[in-house]
Amino acid sequence: MLKKLVIVVLLLGIGIGLFVFFKQPNKTMTIGTYEAVPAIEADLQMMTIEMSSSPDDKIHVRLEGKKGSEEKISIDHDATKLVIKEQNENVKWNNFIQVGSQPKIIIQTPKSLANTITISNRDGDTNLKGLAAETIEVKSTTGRVTLQDMTVSKSELQSTDGSITIHKSAIENGNIASTTGNVTVRESTGAALAIQSTDGQIKMMEATEQSDVRLKSKTGDIQVSYKTAPSSLQLSTSGEIVKIDLSNFDQQTRQIGDGANQLSIETKDGVINVK
């Protein structure tokens, strides 16, 4: 009887401890303020990262999460780059238990001073907004990747299962690869864009003509919807079901006007819809 009572008390104590831990409110903690550098790198496992423009000429780093979350990150800073890493060693076991959203790293950087942004994020989301950069590289496993109001010369975005979304951004040379995650590009401009997905859907919404756009999926549907009807487009499609609804499109030559801009779409089992 005494043994059962001890077990009940222990279980009750554990339950109360977990309840108290989970009831801790999220708080925003200041990690540090740093001199601007030409490169920012992040190596994360579960945390969400959010980057936006700084109110001054400094880099500001904050963390939003439960008390103790700050123990899970390290920051190295020198004259050339700022590196943020999510630590998985030497932390308490309960640092990895989360209810609701994971901790969020919030970085504010001078809008046009981060020439290179490199992010590796396994399960956390990656959100970049209102920045100008020479190069952006993002690798994600299951987390969502979002770029909004960005100006980028070259981007390399890769995701296994998470979605990739680009909204109201100017990317001169974009390369996007996804396995099962959907890719959506909305109200964005650029010169060259290549999107490849195995099973995910690809959507270009409110699109503008670009000199070289290549879209390819194995089983996912591909949809392109232009904001304004193209005036000079060469269209190449490969798929079992292809629907084209474009003004002044010549079915014989597969082009509009003199065909200066290229649009290539290929899917094995999905539906192609261009309008």
Rank of each mutant, 00 (worst) to 15 (best):
Arg214Phe: 11
Ser236Gly: 11
Met29Phe: 15
Pro38Ile: 00
Met29Trp: 10
Asn26Gln: 09
Ser236Thr: 11
Lys67Ala: 10
Thr160Arg: 08
Ser74Ile: 01
Lys275Cys: 09
Asn95Glu: 12
Met29Thr: 12
Ile105Leu: 10
Thr165Ile: 05
Ile171Phe: 02
Ile106Pro: 02
Asp199Val: 00
Thr228Ala: 10
Glu206Thr: 11
Ser140Asn: 07
Asn261Tyr: 01
Gln108Ala: 04
Thr146Trp: 02
Ser217Ala: 13
Leu131Asp: 03
Leu235Gly: 11
Ile16Asp: 01
Lys216Gly: 02
Met205Pro: 01
Thr189Gln: 13
Ser247Gln: 14
Arg62Cys: 00
Pro25Gly: 02
Thr160Ile: 06
Gly162Asp: 05
Glu86Met: 13
Thr135Ser: 15
Ile119Gly: 15
Val8Pro: 03
Arg62Lys: 12
Ile107Cys: 01
Ala133Lys: 13
Ser188Asp: 08
Asn273Tyr: 14
Val20Trp: 11
Pro103Ala: 07
Gly270Leu: 14
Val152Leu: 07
Leu82Val: 02
Ile176Val: 06
Ser217Arg: 04
Glu64Tyr: 01
Val145Cys: 05
Ile176Gly: 03
Asp212Tyr: 15
Asp221Pro: 05
Gly220Ser: 07
Lys85Thr: 13
Asn115Pro: 00
Ile164Val: 12
Pro230Ser: 05
Ile107Ser: 03
Ser155Met: 13
Gly220Glu: 00
Ile171Lys: 06
Asn94Tyr: 15
Phe19Arg: 02
Ile106Asp: 03
Val242Gly: 14
Glu137Val: 10
Met51Ala: 14
Asp123Val: 00
Asp245Arg: 08
Ala36Glu: 01
Ala133Phe: 15
Val145Gln: 04
Gly220Asn: 03
Ile265Ser: 12
Glu209Arg: 05
Thr267Ile: 13
Ser101Pro: 04
Thr48Pro: 01
Lys268Arg: 10
Ala207Trp: 13
Glu187Arg: 01
Thr184Met: 07
Ile176Met: 02
Lys216His: 12
Gln148Met: 00
Gln262Lys: 14
Val9Gly: 06
Asn95Thr: 09
Val9Trp: 09
Ser169His: 04
Ala207Gly: 10
Lys66Phe: 00
Leu10Gly: 02
Gln24Ala: 06
Ala191His: 08
Thr165Arg: 13
Leu10Glu: 00
Ala36Trp: 00
Arg144Asp: 10
Leu157Lys: 04
Asn248Lys: 14
Val224Leu: 10
Glu41Pro: 00
Ile265His: 14
Ile222Lys: 11
Ile84Ala: 15
Thr219Lys: 11
Ser74Gly: 15
Val91Lys: 07
Ile136Cys: 14
Asp258Phe: 07
Ser225Arg: 08
Asp269Gln: 14
Ser69Asn: 12
